[in-house]
Design a protein around this nucleic acid. Structure first.
Lengths: 195, 195
DNA sequence: GCGTTACGGTAACATCCGTTACGAGTCGAG
DNA sequence: CTCGACTCGTAACGGATGTTACCGTAACGC
């Protein structure tokens, strides 16, 4: 038991180290040695916990997915109305503070790494489709009279906007401050009569 | 003269090789040798043309910026009205065909590489700000009665949507087909009364 | 025609990478 | 207490990477 708990705790520590390296040094410096240094251990522990580097990245990717999913679900269940839930879910997907901006950088690093890795790209697609389906469901609940086609189109527009705003803000926080992103989201929801 | 022309032509060939490697193998395999192989030469030519790998990437990044800028300006000057120009500019920023999807992948690869490179991140910011200013100008022309604040907010929403749609489509073309992206753009412009 | 110069390929260099082998230390069962 | 299994750090290996030095060769001025 405690052994198993220790193992998962170590895996989580190493995954967080992967995020740290990815956010601060970028994909090109994401080496096993750099991860070990960020986690405060040696490469021996890393390679004992994961069979190889790809498995390490895949676990870190999945843990990031799980973390953000849990956060969104908490926001969603805390919301009073579907429209509040929709706004809260989209808002956390922007790059409005240091944490979400770093998440966006890590997100993008994984995506760049997924170009040459089938498992990573599969994970990314599964993740993005689940995210789209979630927003789809919230839009449908927020606008019950809409046709399915309009729900799908607006859901796509909304997740694209959140994704793009996060990417823009992650690379240039000064040019895309939090208030501007939130304003853009609010104005767009209002234009769709979803506010 | 011919020497200078040859030099710039070679630099362009090498930059296109950088794009090819970045689009097909990803940032992790973007090595000097891979670029030389894609360009059909050896590393000697590459290192004779550019002082080091970073200069090679920076040149490829700037050439990509210049290429897309020229394409957008051509679309803009060919448009009859500001609203047509706005739609055309945003539409080419989506990931609606193989070329634009590959451009989005390359774009993202450069962004991932820029995390650890000050010159690359500066280039990216300059580029994104110019792009935002262009859309800002087109929105202002398309909606002359709007306040400056609304123009800025809507411009941000629109470039975020285009950027995000391109990223989503580049990673998962099957889930985000061209028609859906175009539909989302059209519907959003209509919601803002810009169609 | 000849010497010079720039061009580009070859090969080497030091370094860093992922991965593996091995050994010291630790914990628990009998 | 002893022995075996497990954990993790150390060190090494083969291979790849960015970069440099060197050398043949083709083009250009005189």
């Amino acid at each position: 038991m405690s052994r198993a708990a220790d193992k998962t705790a170590q895996a989580e520590t190493l995954s967080r180290a992967v995020w740290t390296v990815l956010a601060t040094r970028g994909l090109e410096h994401l080496t096993v040695r750099a991860v070990a240094a960020a986690a405060g251990c040696t490469t021996g522990l890393v390679m004992h916990r994961f069979p190889n580097r790809r498995a390490l990245l895949l676990h870190a990717r999945r843990l990031l997915h799980e973390t953000t999913r849990a956060r969104v679900e908490a926001l969603e269940s805390a919301a009073a109305t579907p429209r509040e839930a929709l706004y809260a879910a989209l808002r956390q997907g922007l790059g409005t503070d240091e944490q979400t901006r770093q998440e966006a950088i890590v997100w993008m690093g994984f995506l760049a790494a997924a170009i040459a890795d089938d498992e990573l790209i599969d994970e990314h697609r599964r993740n993005n489709r689940a995210w789209r389906d979630r927003i789809h469901r919230l839009v449908a609940a927020a606008a019950p009279t809409w046709t399915a086609a309009r729900v799908a189109t607006v859901a796509l527009a909304l997740i694209a906007m959140a994704e793009g705003a996060a990417a823009l803000a992650a690379a240039d926080p000064a040019a895309f401050p939090a208030e501007d992103q939130e304003q853009a989201l609010s104005v767009t929801l209002a234009a769709f009569d979803l506010s």
